[in-house]
């Protein structure tokens, strides 16, 4: 694994991957959302509003996956002290926050015609909102710590610890609908029990989720490359100034 943690080797793999992930992910997402929205069926109870799910559900998964990425990369950074892990963790923050925000917004738009309310403080909705605020706090902490470290070239250890601790919200979000009574419906798709979503809606949904994941990966790679380039630039500037 350390072989890939070398920035030069990482870039060699990341450059082509960024393009592939971006284009395939973007096209797949558009295609599957279009499939679901224009060609998919309406729901027997919800009617047309079920079509919001093709963005809401992938956004929810990726909002949570984004923090899982932050937590795993942060743990790797703390254990192996590898700067690339820290860069990866910070790169997950913005796309994760965007997907969490989209999940909340589209859920609210869905809730109005379905439940009859834009927002309710039930377990699932509240824990998802907490996730969004955690992202904001993480980004603020990351930029503050990088600024403070500045010349010292610190590793952003506080940020990493926060990223790791914040992961406790993930099981809360997941189990909120199982353990607490919530307005939000229970789990529809589970690895053990299969899915209670009909195939005509499930396939476009899964396609959209894969597409959104690839797009997420592309954004993370772009942000990692940007930060690597900025670090390189800073080091060269400093060397120029010294000579």
């Amino acid at each position: 694994m350390h072989a890939y943690a070398n920035p030069a080797r990482f870039l060699k793999i990341a450059r082509p991957l960024t393009h592939w992930f971006g284009w395939i992910g973007g096209l797949l997402l558009l295609l599957c959302v279009g499939w679901g929205v224009f060609a998919g069926p309406a729901d027997y109870l919800q009617g047309e509003t079920v079509r919001i799910m093709y963005i809401h559900v992938p956004a929810a998964w990726l909002g949570m996956a984004g923090w899982s990425g932050i937590a795993i990369a942060s743990a790797m950074q703390l254990i192996w002290r590898h700067p690339l892990a820290g860069i990866a963790a910070r790169a997950c923050a913005l796309p994760g926050a965007v997907f969490a925000a989209l999940c909340l917004a589209t859920g609210s738009i869905w809730g109005r015609p379905t439940w009859g309310t834009w927002w309710e403080w039930d377990g699932r909705l509240t824990s998802m909102l907490v996730l969004f605020f955690l992202y904001l706090a993480y980004m603020a902490l990351a930029s503050a710590e990088q600024e403070a470290d500045g010349e010292a070239g610190g590793e952003g250890r506080m940020t990493a610890i926060f990223g790791l601790v914040g992961a406790i919200n993930l099981p809360i979000i997941h189990y909120s609908v199982l353990w607490w009574r919530t307005l939000h419906q229970g789990q529809s798709i589970s690895l053990m029990k299969g899915s209670s979503i009909d195939g005509s809606m499930l396939w476009p949904l899964l396609g959209a989720a894969v597409g959104a994941s690839l797009l997420f990966g592309a954004v993370v790679l772009m942000r990692m490359r940007a930060e690597l380039a900025r670090t390189k630039l800073e080091m060269r500037m400093r060397r120029l100034a010294a000579s």
Partner: peptide
Amino acid sequence: LAKHDERYMPPQM
């Protein structure tokens, strides 16, 4: 408030 369940399917089914 109407509570929705976790089943999604087309009306004819």
